[in-house]
Amino acid sequence: MSKTFEMLELLGDHPDGISAARAAEITGHPFSTAYRLLGGLVESDYASFDPSTKAYTLGMEVFRLAQKVAHRRGLSGATRDLLAELTAATGESSILAVRRGNAALTVLTVDGPQFRTTTDPGDESPLHTSAIGQALLAHDPAAEATIEALEFEARTPNSITDPDQMRRKLEQIRETGWAGQSEENDVGMNALAVPVFDLDGRLLASLALAAPVFRRSLDELVALVPQLTKTAADIAARFPR
């Protein structure tokens, strides 16, 4: 069973598709094993196979289950209208993310009227470079252990790569209640995020607004914090206790 899950993860890492031969090469399994595992996933609709390209991709059953989980956790259907209202009010793209290991997993996005976000549901962002990640990391009870585990690789020339600098920024985030980044995660993009706590004060997610630098400066995004925090509270109110 673990080999099957490994193959599912591999398909998730290759959204444009992967051949059985390449899957065997990456996993180290014999070709016959990789072919059998992929075939089983296709039979159960957890994978799809394109005969013209000989490529395997994730199937609709994975999408169906993901949608069920997202809805159960209040991260998709129950909150999409709130993000849509936030985007309509601010004119900027909104992003909802949760923690997954040492990354921020995007679960929902609503594109602004003039551009689409640089992240899609299912994408992972580094905790130390993205606003959504920094907001999650700042309120992690085990933040110090997480910092020690991070590799602090730079995504842009503005990325924070020094753990002590990150510690100082996280303290600032806790004081202000928001995390902002200017071209730390993607060149040409600013973003600002706030944490989403449930009614018992537990960290659930982070909510962000993202805008290209030519449209809004980081200071201009900061002016939208009241709207962002209100939406975060509205999201929290919809989570089951």
Rank of each mutant, 00 (worst) to 15 (best):
A145V: 11
G201N: 06
R167L: 04
G12H: 04
E148N: 11
F239K: 10
A78W: 02
A135P: 13
R168A: 11
L209D: 01
I173H: 03
A237L: 09
H139I: 06
S52I: 08
A24C: 06
L203E: 04
S206V: 00
H71L: 15
Y56H: 13
I147Y: 00
E151S: 09
L37S: 10
A97L: 01
L75A: 13
Q165E: 13
E124N: 14
T146K: 05
Q165H: 11
A223G: 04
A233W: 15
A179I: 12
T106G: 07
E85M: 05
W178E: 12
Q172D: 14
I147R: 10
G77A: 15
P51Y: 01
E171Q: 13
V107P: 05
V98E: 13
A138R: 13
S93P: 07
A97T: 10
G201S: 01
L10V: 00
T229A: 05
A233K: 07
L137M: 05
D45I: 10
L203H: 09
S94D: 04
A66S: 15
E6T: 00
L65G: 12
A88E: 07
Q181M: 12
V213T: 04
H14M: 06
T106S: 03
M1Y: 11
E43I: 02
A211C: 14
L221E: 02
P30V: 14
I95R: 06
A138V: 11
E220D: 04
P163E: 01
S76M: 13
V222D: 02
S182Q: 02
A131K: 11
R36G: 09
D111N: 12
R215A: 08
Q67V: 08
P113H: 04
